[in-house]
Computed example of a mutant assay.
Amino acid sequence: MDVRRITINVAGRVYPLNVPAAEEETLRKVGKQIEAMIKDFELNFDVRDKQDALAMCALKLGTNAEVSAKANEKNINASNDRLMKINQLLEDLEK
């Protein structure tokens, strides 16, 4: 596995990471998104320090992840239902 050493800047701190090459672009993108979110929170809300901005980022990202997970679960369940109906139709045709 190709592992790369990269640095990500979050909230004014530099974090060295060893990451699989396939994940490097994603980590850099997420790092930039977090930085943008921090700036947005600092500009638009009464944020006292970076800790508050990071906590707000964590809440927003966690909420987004949970909403996506629920939507994915709903889509999977709907797809399973459709596949079971199709399977039943095929079984009925074989009879």
Results as ranks from 00 to 15, higher is better:
46 D>G: 03
46 D>S: 13
41 F>D: 05
39 K>A: 10
78 A>Y: 05
6 I>E: 11
51 Q>H: 06
50 K>N: 08
59 L>V: 14
44 N>I: 07
46 D>K: 14
65 A>M: 15
27 L>V: 05
18 N>G: 01
61 L>R: 02
52 D>A: 06
88 Q>F: 14
30 V>A: 02
16 P>V: 08
32 K>M: 08
2 D>S: 09
12 G>D: 07
66 E>Q: 13
74 K>M: 12
62 G>A: 12
73 E>W: 00
31 G>Y: 11
49 D>Q: 02
15 Y>K: 00
16 P>N: 03
5 R>C: 02
61 L>T: 03
16 P>W: 02
54 L>F: 01
29 K>R: 11
12 G>Q: 08
93 L>M: 13
76 I>G: 04
8 I>Y: 03
19 V>E: 03
52 D>I: 01
73 E>I: 01
8 I>R: 01
51 Q>I: 10
48 R>H: 07
13 R>Y: 05
25 E>D: 08
68 S>R: 11
65 A>D: 10
86 I>W: 00
27 L>N: 01
49 D>M: 03
95 K>N: 06
59 L>Q: 06
10 V>R: 01
73 E>Y: 03
61 L>M: 15
46 D>P: 10
78 A>C: 01
28 R>Q: 12
53 A>V: 04
43 L>M: 13
35 E>K: 10
12 G>S: 09
95 K>P: 00
92 D>Q: 14
18 N>H: 05
39 K>T: 06
74 K>Q: 14
49 D>C: 05
35 E>Y: 03
78 A>L: 14
47 V>K: 07
45 F>W: 07
17 L>M: 13
33 Q>F: 02
62 G>D: 05
65 A>N: 08
10 V>M: 00
25 E>Q: 07
82 R>L: 10
52 D>T: 06
87 N>A: 15
70 K>C: 00
61 L>E: 01
74 K>N: 09
47 V>P: 05
56 M>W: 05
1 M>K: 11
81 D>A: 15
